[in-house]
Design a protein around this nucleic acid. Structure first.
Lengths: 340, 340
DNA sequence: GACAGCCTTGCACACGTGTGCAACTATAGC
DNA sequence: GCTATAGTTGCACACGTGTGCAAGGCTGTC
């Protein structure tokens, strides 16, 4: 029950009511020792009678904890961000911290701006999802000992990172196709600026070499994770003189785009051509046909990032950690042996 | 390029570099008049040379604008929140403001807590999506002249609100079913604690009366917008001695749940029973069969809320506004004339 | 009973920024 | 050349909270 004066209740109001100094109230709020039980009771009574709510800006300025973690993401349009955000949100809720979510709308400059602003007195720590220009701020944050974690990034000497075993996952996908009998497999890559995209391509190449598959540069189409790039990639691969009998796509969204394009070209999946995605987005299960894909533990990546971050908030001198989470091949109905 | 000392650059550092007082730097930053062009140039040079980033906590404490808007939502699990959040996010991005997103995880106490904390020095204004305990804070915020807007809520004497014309939308849905020839129509309500749920039920009742449809209390099942409540509602309606030939469901998520339950009971939609939802979530279009539904302009509601909020931030004495947005009936394949 | 030591509390300053007021400078008008 | 005025800038304080330091009170020990 705040006062009716129209301004929020401050620590000073509480102190006056309890007949103590504002320092004592601050100590009660922060659970400091050396408070007489009777005093603590009076202060707590005043706190709840006045309905005190901490001014976090003031607390931050004075060097206290905000109980707030910042999360910078590309956007909220796709399921991918959504899944990771859920994991982060849940993990933070469990420890009573709050989330400040900022979307960069895919503009790299905004990634840097957000990191700069959030790290100056707005949050206790920062998680950056799919960082694209981390080299612009990682060193500075590290110098300031500001806690932060990169997700879907390997990390670096200055930065902790959480990422899936993308190369191994890609090899799993390729091995599955090879075991079905496919010899000529196309690949629509994700954005090669990201570790995820680059590593999945590396896994593809590794599998082609190790399994003795057709090694033809025109089988690789450079995409960017988007549905549109999946469509374009499918068109490219269909135009080849010698078509692949299967396509490994570096992201489910792109795989769904490719599936649509193949369907429009009159091909049916998997009897005419097999398709494997990556991520295991919710829509992969509901696609027509349900998509075979490599599951990336997106919510877990968010949760692990929170764990790492909390540890660094508690002890900013902690060494950086690079965490790689395993993937799982999920076989559904978009893959089958090649014709004949 | 911040200094290498490990602490962020402050306005004082900039002032020293430019050979002026910190007041002058502050004035340059805030675009105040009466600055000699030459001085302004020196300050701007120092700002960019040092890579100054404002400490928002300090700015907030000193009474300045944060450029930050808080958004309190139930959760990010369903598409509904997601759509509104997108609208808010886009509208804010257009005017260069940032979003602070907080999820209550459906706990009403947290709604109140978040509103209290965010409104004390953390944000310039607040949007609350699907408010459930607004009476606990609306009056206080209004007294403090703190700008806030409720979304999916009618608003009150103290609170601005943005909401869809739920009653009219429900009447449209019912009229569509009646025109197809349905006489006995069930209704699975949304949460009746929300205006949306209550108003859609009111629309159902109004249509039953005005169109002379079967008026049987057992045709109404009280749900809560969730998929599970849709399943339970469908089970209830199937158990009735005299079954309805159509169901109007107060939310798409629940309608999809109901569709699943009907399918498991061996009924086919729309030949055995017609189904109409509400919201027009993205999944309504991809449901089996594609769902006839009442579109609620979710992203627009978010955008309009931002507009209202910005106006109140600019002038906190502005009168409260209650905005109602029209709905649109989207006819797909889940409705047909009744058997026989 | 005196002294040491711990418990408890308040004072005063710090954090970074915005702003009213006063002071100073430059310009123009007479 | 003097004054009035507008333009420009700095000083000092405010915002709300956390904390080092010191002072006071209490307890226990010899």
């Amino acid at each position: 029950m705040p006062d009716a004066s129209g301004t929020p209740v401050t620590i000073v109001d509480v102190a006056r009511r309890a007949g103590v100094s504002h320092s004592t109230v601050s100590r009660v709020l922060n659970g400091r020792p050396h408070i007489k039980p009777e005093t603590r009771r009076r202060v707590e009574a005043a706190l709840s009678e006045l309905g005190y709510v901490a001014n976090l800006s003031a607390r931050s300025l004075a060097g206290g904890r905000l109980g707030l973690v910042g999360l910078v993401v590309l956007d909220l349009e796709g399921s991918y961000s959504h899944q990771v955000v859920r994991g982060v949100d849940q993990a933070l809720a469990e420890v009573g911290l709050e989330l400040m979510l900022c979307t960069t709308h895919r503009r790299e400059q905004r990634e840097h701006d957000y990191v700069a602003r959030l790290s100056v007195g707005m949050c206790d720590g920062l998680i950056v999802l799919v960082p694209k220009s981390e080299q612009r701020y990682a060193k500075e944050l590290a110098e300031r000992r500001y806690p932060f974690v990169l997700v879907d990034h390997k990390g670096s000497a200055e930065a902790s990172g959480v990422i899936a075993r993308n190369e191994a996952g890609a090899i799993d996908a390729m091995t599955h196709l090879a075991e079905l009998g496919h010899q000529r497999i196309g690949h629509i890559t994700g954005s090669l600026e990201t570790s995820a995209g680059a590593d999945r391509l590396a896994g593809y190449r590794r599998a082609v070499a190790d399994l003795g598959l057709d090694d033809d540069p025109s089988l690789v189409y450079e995409g960017d994770f988007s549905m549109e790039s999946g469509e374009a990639g499918a068109r490219h691969l269909m135009r080849l003189g010698q078509r692949p009998t299967a396509i490994f796509v570096g992201a489910d969204a792109a795989a769904i785009g490719a599936a649509g394009e193949l369907w429009r070209a009159g091909l049916s999946i998997p009897s005419d051509i097999s398709l494997v995605g990556f991520d295991d987005l919710p829509e992969a299960e509901y696609a027509q046909p349900p998509l075979t894909t490599v599951r990336q533990p997106m919510a877990d990546m968010g949760r692990e990032a929170v764990k790492l971050l909390l540890a660094r908030i508690d002890d900013p001198t902690l060494a950086v950690t690079h965490l790689e989470l395993p993937t799982t091949l999920i076989v559904r109905s978009s893959t089958a042996p090649p014709r004949g």
